[in-house]
Write a protein that binds this DNA or RNA. Structure first.
Lengths: 118, 118
DNA sequence: ACATTGTGCAACCTAAAGGTTGCAGTTTCT
DNA sequence: AGAAACTGCAACCTTTAGGTTGCACAATGT
């Protein structure tokens, strides 16, 4: 088995909390921005990061586990790239909750404006 | 000074990573869903949660610090409520990065389909 | 073959996150 | 005044997150 390049994004739809947790780190957001511009290896990313390659590797694993990025082997390098579908879960969750809150807050506003008051 | 109800959401626009980190917990997502339905006190929320009131209080503080909820005193209770604007930061960030990724991935597709290949 | 460059693994460290318990302070109700 | 119901603070515990170092393994270039 390959292992490295498989057991990651294939895990179906990840938990919203897990994805948010993966996004909840300054360095990982930086990595996502970087990979958004062009695919890169851990070593290459570490060159621009304020931490060691190993730290970057750990961050990449976290991002990979929740499906935000994918890895492919290219010769002796492992190149990571962004997965657009990975944004599905967090975007969906935020959409849903924004809609729910909006409905409720709207109802409050209407209840305050509509009925008699003075 | 009041302290309790002030030094929280007034901190301007919070860091995206911090907001995501605040969202990166199963219990906190549950709390946000609950508060989305109706405002509630920590004690009330704890009744529905699998953890103690104190744990819920800590979660509420985290959510408050990043501006996702707000607290107001009501008699002897402290009632927490949702803040729609609190979703601004994460939504914005996801929008931005999705757009950036989309542009780049689109360019890759076109480069693969456009030029000669046979 | 051999040096180079990049990845992978493991041990280890420190700080922070999440949670608990216990107790003191406040507001409300009777 | 006294009981009841909440909130607030502090100490403490355990696990995890983020990071580092060191070394072994694999692919490439000369």
């Amino acid at each position: 088995m390959t292992g490295l390049l498989e057991a990651s994004a294939a895990s179906g739809t990840p938990d919203a909390a897990e994805v948010f947790a993966a996004l909840g780190d300054k360095h990982r957001l930086g990595i996502l921005r970087g990979l958004g511009m062009r695919p890169a290896s851990a070593t290459a990313l570490a060159a621009d990061a304020p931490v060691t390659r190993q730290a970057v590797v750990k961050h990449l694993r976290v991002l990979e586990r929740v499906g935000l990025i994918a890895a492919r082997r290219e010769g002796r390098e492992v190149v990571y790239d962004v997965r657009l579908e990975g944004l599905q879960t967090p975007v969906q969750w935020l959409d849903d909750i924004a809609a729910a809150w909006d409905r409720r807050l709207d109802a409050v506003k209407q209840a305050a404006e509509g009925p008699s008051e003075g």
